[in-house]
Design a protein around this nucleic acid. Structure first.
Lengths: 210, 210
DNA sequence: AATTGTGAATCTCTTCACAGCA
DNA sequence: TGCTGTGAAGAGATTCACAATT
């Protein structure tokens, strides 16, 4: 099997969102043309992307929404539930704990940790915030594969190492630092200021309308 | 002037972070080789990227950190202060309000809005949360160029339109929807579940170590 | 008639490799 | 010698365009 281009992987979530919406609306089939218009891509690109995962389109008709949905879910790995460890229960951690989209999309917070004694023991939904000292043991014991890192920048690398040693395979990192980790651990970075900088860059480099 | 490739724009924030750290540590020069190792890029790429903005490296020495820092800041547009409107004062909105990195990086929240009457009037730092009905007028009056959208998915498109009409040039969107806007308005999307899906995808498609 | 899947062409990005500079 | 800046080559991603399919 050809390996999947990075660019394609980044678009899969896009397809998933579209297909879930269509399925929810009872739409049975979708053509590459129709999908491409909704998503702002080209029709050829949609076909090329989907072709990486097999050939399940139907000439003259398009793709069966339900079948394709199952396929994309399987490809993304969201056809099963993923327990996630949340580390850091500050402002951001609390917002993530309350984030309603996660449970609807196969990710559920299975444990919450914080190093601040004042926060430990506090109830977050049905969970209690646990001391960060128990992080390694608990994550390993529960075999939690994913973690969300919502701790201050200067604590991030240390926590990341402990998570990696505890067997975590992927980390969603909100701290504005580049984590150094063994390559079996994948990292997705979300950095709010980087995103704002992209906006200021584009504004600065575009002709003003007025 | 050649137009700047998208891929380069995305790396500028990376360079900015590195240069700020070096400058803080009193480092005077940096070679493309040294920079590339820290950042996990190739040395040729660093040189190529920087060359888009002029030629200010020095043969045999490298780049002057302070000069390059100023240059990168100017390119990204973070050499001046950017007022930002925050729309949505729920869990995420409060976390963003408290986010300490923004003020250090030329972005400051200049106004906060929420449609929930119970939240209006509440104090967020030195600001009072304002009614969303005043959004258009206030944003226009204050000429706020950037907005952070931290509202529920079903309200996002409507708020985005009002922001666009009020003259906003860039929107950082946290709602899991694709905003339709005039193309003079740039959008950066941050979608937590998309990032988690990228992790599950990579884990699913990688040989397990054990 | 409508639509897929894909070779070939094109466009974009990255790396190689080296002349030229301090 | 150590390093930049860049032309040329290479790799990767996108689009074109059309034979094959229902």
């Amino acid at each position: 099997m050809k390996s999947i281009p990075k660019a394609v992987a980044n678009r899969l979530s896009l397809y998933l969102r579209l297909l879930e919406r269509l399925h929810g609306n009872g739409v049975l089939t979708i053509s590459s043309r129709a999908a491409s218009e909704t998503l702002g891509l080209s029709d050829a690109q949609v076909r090329r992307d989907l072709a990486y995962f097999g050939t399940f389109g139907q000439s003259g008709i398009g793709y069966l929404v339900e079948e394709l949905l199952g396929k994309v879910r399987a490809i993304l790995g969201t056809d099963r539930a993923w327990p996630v460890a949340l580390v850091g229960y500050g402002n951001l951690g609390r917002a993530l704990m309350a984030y309603a989209e996660f449970p609807h999309r196969s990710f559920h917070i299975a444990a919450v940790f914080d190093s601040d004694k004042a926060k430990v023991g506090r109830s977050a939904r049905q969970l209690k915030v646990q001391s960060a000292s128990r992080l390694f043991t608990r994550v390993k014991q529960l075999r939690i594969p994913l973690a969300i890192l919502a701790v201050p920048a200067d604590a991030a690398q240390n926590v990341a190492w402990r998570l990696a040693r505890a067997g975590v395979r992927g980390i969603l990192n909100f701290a504005p630092v580049r984590l150094q980790l063994p390559k079996r651990v994948f990292v997705s970075n979300i950095d709010f200021t980087v995103s704002l900088e992209q906006l200021s860059f584009h504004i600065r480099h575009t002709k003003r309308k007025s």
